[in-house]
Computed example of a mutant assay.
Amino acid sequence: MRKDREPADNEAILRGAGLRITRQRRIILDILHATEGHPDAAAIHARAVAQDSRISLATVYRTMRALEDSGAIQRHAFEGGPARFEQAPPDHHDHLIDLDTGEVVEFKSDRIEAIQEEIAARLGYEIVHHRLELYGRRVAKGVKDRK
């Protein structure tokens, strides 16, 4: 998760969704704030129960759903795997998923964005939302372009 939003900001979001801010939810929010990358609910839950064994997976899912519904986080299901989460980014980016390790690499490309806009315009559309996910395997060093 990114550090763009403080746990207190997410507390306000949860209150707005009608959820009480319990000690368990505070733990979940602190974990989200401290976690790098794109954790899944099971990873968040595992870290949470290490701090409070009474935190259920259902509480994690309810908390994540309220944050997702508010737009504070985004849910991804890369290659049919478990849902993974990231704080809603301030600017658009795409993802490259390593099929061997599951690592998610974020990247930006003005060139790709321009091509997408060009294609949409040529077909008579305006893009209002999109996601680009690339799936690959790391190429051994020294290997040149494969054609």
Rank of each mutant, 00 (worst) to 15 (best):
L96P: 00
P90M: 12
V49N: 02
T35M: 14
I127V: 02
D110V: 03
S53L: 04
E118Q: 14
I97K: 01
K147N: 05
D52I: 04
E117W: 01
A12W: 04
D145M: 04
L96H: 01
T59D: 13
I73G: 10
R47C: 06
R146S: 09
A48C: 10
R2A: 14
R26S: 13
V49M: 03
R15Y: 06
E11T: 03
L134Q: 01
E113Y: 10
D4F: 12
D30W: 07
R138K: 05
R2M: 08
A77R: 00
V49H: 02
H129N: 15
I115Y: 06
D110H: 01
I112G: 04
D100Y: 02
E103G: 04
G71P: 12
G124E: 02
N10E: 07
H38Y: 13
P82R: 02
G18F: 11
G18L: 09
V104H: 02
N10K: 03
V128D: 06
A46F: 08
G124V: 02
V60N: 11
H92R: 14
I28V: 15
D69F: 00
A120P: 09
E106Y: 01
F85L: 08
A50T: 05
I13V: 15
A121V: 04
L14N: 08
I31T: 13
H92D: 11
G80L: 00
T22C: 11
E103M: 04
F107E: 07
R122E: 15
P7T: 03
T59E: 14
Y135T: 00
A140P: 10
K141N: 09
I73R: 10
E68N: 08
R20D: 15
P89E: 15
V143W: 09
T59M: 11
Q116A: 14
A140E: 15
E106N: 01
I31K: 01
R65V: 04
L123E: 05
A34P: 07
D4H: 10
R75S: 10
A77G: 03
D9I: 08
L19I: 10
E126H: 04
I119F: 03
D94M: 14
I119H: 05
G71V: 13
L134T: 02
I55S: 10
A17Q: 13
A41H: 06
S70G: 02
I44K: 11
A12G: 03
R5N: 08
I27P: 07
K144C: 06
R15S: 12
S53P: 04
D69T: 05
R137T: 12
G124Y: 01
I115P: 03
A43Q: 12
Q74M: 13
A43H: 11
A88Q: 14
S53I: 06
T63M: 10
G142T: 09
R47L: 09
H130D: 14
P90L: 15
L14Y: 07
R5Y: 12
H92L: 14
H45V: 05
P90Y: 11
Q87G: 15
S56K: 11
L134C: 03
A58I: 05
H38F: 15
R131N: 15
I44N: 12
V128P: 01
V143R: 14
D9A: 12
T35V: 12
